[in-house]
């Protein structure tokens, strides 16, 4: 038996909206410690990982580990039927072929349940090593969204370089070139509006803007995003989901021939 209850459906709605275009389907691995997901995009250029911790839920019960194959487009259709403020409960019997989603309105005068058919998805599980990054940059997620959107109008790839001057995003295309630099800035009173650059050594990497833009679909989840960069390694773009956990996007760099 698996049962997980969240006080606000909005969180799950936003999570699925952030994932569904990048990864059409994937396995929700449930265990007593929470729900996790690892899925690659169809071209195997990026990897999405999701971790939702058991203690971040209002109620969490998982008697045995299960892998639930989910089509995110279909899950999104069901979640559109939930109000943002609804309480949401996910339920499945052991070895079930369906996941039940129950929505309750705040004053409990409306209760609905939807069953989502589960799929059998074979997925290769990748081991992601823990490591120290050359540069870790925390910035407002809306700023990240704006930068990658603005640069997409100029080019297809972006050179991200972190130095003691700041983090610079550069692109070029048929119409010209663009550079946007963000400096370490702890002036704003609100921590959410600050930019923190933690630099161990300068690093510069090139990435496809299309994917970085896609990651920005997670912006509504949280006001800050963290970028982690190391030479010749995938960039990590991380959005924390309150006390519940986080979603991380790993994007392989472009490598000079």
């Amino acid at each position: 038996m698996f049962e997980a209850r969240l006080p606000q459906a909005a969180v799950l709605k936003k999570l699925v909206e952030a994932l569904k275009e990048l990864v059409t389907e994937g396995n929700f691995d449930v265990s007593p410690s929470g729900i996790s997901l690892q899925a690659m995009d169809s071209s195997h250029v990026c990897l999405v990982t999701l971790q939702l911790n058991d203690d971040g839920f209002e109620h969490f019960r998982c008697d045995r580990n299960m892998s639930m194959g989910i089509h995110f487009g279909n899950l999104s259709k069901i979640l559109k039927c939930a109000g943002n403020e609804d309480t949401i409960t996910l339920k499945a019997e052991d070895n079930a072929d369906q996941l039940t989603l129950m929505f309750e309105s705040a004053n409990q005068d409306r209760i609905s349940d939807f069953d989502l058919k589960l799929m059998s998805i074979e997925s290769e599980h990748l081991g992601i090593p823990d490591q120290d990054y050359s540069a870790e940059v925390k910035m407002p997620s809306a700023e990240y969204q704006r930068i990658v959107r603005d640069l997409t109008s100029m080019g297809d790839t972006v050179l991200v370089s972190a130095t003691k001057e700041g983090i610079k995003f550069s692109t070029s295309g048929d119409i010209g070139t663009a550079n946007i630099t963000l400096r370490h800035n702890t002036t704003p009173e609100k921590e959410d509006e600050q930019t923190h650059i933690d630099l161990k050594e300068p690093v510069a990497l090139t990435f496809a803007l299309r994917y970085l833009n896609n990651f920005a679909k997670a912006t509504p989840l949280t006001p800050q995003v963290k970028l982690s960069l190391t030479k010749d390694l995938p960039v990590v773009v991380e959005y924390k989901v309150g006390e519940l956990g986080q979603v991380r996007f790993f994007l392989a760099p472009k490598i000079d021939d």
């Binding site: 690659m40 195997h44 290769e124 090139t206 392989a252 472009k254 000079d256």
Partner: peptide, 14 residues
């Protein structure tokens, strides 16, 4: 000219 790397080139089977 640059080539897009695959993510599996960086992370092993786990």
């Amino acid at each position: 000219k640059s080539t897009q790397a695959k993510i599996s080139a960086f992370f092993g089977a786990g």
